[in-house]
């Protein structure tokens, strides 16, 4: 579904990503974890086109047909099946919950041949994330945890084949976060791929098929949840070695 190859990003003197490569297979739930400042959100921005890499490529596709999207603007990548949520929340704050999701469904109708009713799609997606009862609220009345779910519903309304989720679980309590985990599993069973950045390690370990660990802008480990959990390098990076 997604191939990222040798991506490098520099901000001034700071190297945010140093030769990152990773792959998201079809219908897979892939986790991306690492300490704060490791470069996870920057990688998301590179994949969705909000950030230009200094080097490297991003490709979308399946089987033998892969398209290099490195030079495409964000909206064209979205039309090729890429959807995302944001760590720093990016809801449409002047609109209601329902309108937020509706806008995405309507946008999809303007560029795809899908003629499902946008209003219906919006309600359906809000139902899926469990926010149907709040659909007439203005979004700036909601807690940050719920806003993240609005973003998930909005991303789903564009019916992406690959969904990038940036900390969807932060701000949720344990019941809500469990429900989120179940939703992610369902979404993948429907055939979507998901790349998940999440700090709730428990959630990541429970639902992901494979995990990449990013530290100092580099992938330092990759494997199944078990493998990653046992990796001493990951323990060191994630918990911090005793420096003093």
């Amino acid at each position: 579904m997604l191939r990222v190859e040798d991506v490098e990003v520099r901000f001034g003197g700071v190297q945010a990503l140093k030769g990152v490569s990773l792959e998201v297979p079809d219908a897979a739930l892939v986790g991306l974890i690492g300490p704060n400042g490791a470069g996870k959100t920057t990688l998301f921005n590179v994949i969705t086109g909000l950030e230009k890499p200094n080097r490297g490529s991003v490709r979308l596709g399946a089987g033998d047909t892969w398209v290099d999207v490195t030079s495409l603007p964000p909206h064209q990548r979205a039309r090729r099946g890429l959807g995302r949520t944001f760590q720093r929340i990016e809801v449409f704050s002047s609109l209601t919950v329902h309108e937020n999701v509706l806008a995405a469904a309507e946008a999809r109708r303007s560029w795809s041949r899908d003629d499902a009713s946008p209003a219906q799609t919006a309600s359906e997606m809000l139902e899926r994330v469990g926010l149907r009862h709040l659909e007439h609220e203005r979004v700036d009345m909601l807690s940050t945890g719920l806003l993240r779910l609005v973003e998930v519903a909005r991303a789903l309304a564009s019916r992406p084949r690959l969904l990038l989720l940036d900390e969807p679980g932060s701000g949720l309590d344990s019941t809500e976060s469990e429900a989120l985990g179940d939703l992610l599993v369902e979404l993948v069973q429907d055939g979507r791929s998901i790349l998940l950045v999440e700090h709730d390690v428990e959630l990541v370990m429970r639902v992901c098929h494979e995990i990449h660990v990013l530290d100092f802008g580099q992938v330092i480990a990759h494997g199944t949840p078990d493998e990653v959990q046992r990796d001493p390098a990951v323990q060191a990076a994630y918990l911090g070695t005793s420096a003093a």
């Binding site: 603007p73 909206h75 990548r77 809801v91 609109l95 937020n100 806008a103 946008a107 999809r108 909005r154």
Partner: peptide, 15 residues
């Protein structure tokens, strides 16, 4: 209005 509220989010939904 969506585009004005968040250009980044609008673009990533194909607008």
């Amino acid at each position: 209005i969506a585009l004005n509220d968040s250009p980044a989010a609008s673009a990533t939904m194909g607008v």
